[in-house]
């Protein structure tokens, strides 16, 4: 029994039942498939993180973001600047207690290098309803190249707990044709 020592002194040499052996081979093969699937997707899939990141500071990051906001703001909404940066450009989104700033207006089927960083605690970039979720750290600038493929209005929910105002931290991204 499993609660008593093995009955055989040398149990290592006991033959394995065929059905167990088959299952081990199946499970091992499935593991390999799942392993190589991740590598395959890096080549063939369109949804991968570049893992490009930089050490930064709140000051450095917010200066870059402010420069972008100053240059490309097109209007205001609920006190937030709405920024329409040129396609292909560096786009900055600031996470802070408890706001995402600015509101971004992007063009459909164009690529942008989105930079994410936090001014204070950790936050979670959760783009809805697309459901893309990325962690945002203070002191690190994470770069994700995004290519919105559908026009519309998207919410940016914070999905990393960041204190008492966490559930009010909502940002917005517009994608226009």
């Amino acid at each position: 029994m499993a609660i008593t020592p093995p009955s055989e002194r040398i149990w290592w040499k006991e033959p394995i039942a065929k059905i167990e052996l088959i299952w081990i081979v199946v499970a091992f093969t499935w593991g390999l498939i799942m392993f190589f699937m991740m590598i395959y997707w890096h080549g063939a899939g369109e949804q991968n993180l570049s893992n490009e990141a930089y050490k930064t500071t709140a000051l450095k990051f917010s200066q870059k973001a402010e420069a972008m906001i100053d240059e490309y703001t097109v209007r205001e909404e609920n006190g937030f600047p709405v920024v329409h940066p040129p396609p292909g450009s560096e786009v900055y989104l600031i996470a802070r207690l408890w706001q995402w700033s600015p509101i971004l207006e992007l063009e459909k089927d164009q690529s942008y290098r989105l930079h994410l960083s936090s001014m204070d605690w950790q936050h979670g970039f959760s783009l809805q309803p697309v459901n893309i979720n990325v962690q945002v750290h203070p002191g690190y600038d994470m770069v994700v190249t995004i290519k919105p493929d559908q026009a519309g209005e998207y919410g940016v929910v914070c999905n990393e707990y960041c204190g008492i105002g966490h559930h009010n931290m909502v940002g917005k991204i517009y994608v226009v044709d």
Binding site: A53, Y54, K55, T56, F61, D141
Partner: peptide, 11 residues
């Protein structure tokens, strides 16, 4: 993992 973190370049 820690080695990877230390190798993140500075902006």
């Amino acid at each position: 993992g820690i080695i990877e973190i230390t190798q993140i370049p500075i902006a």
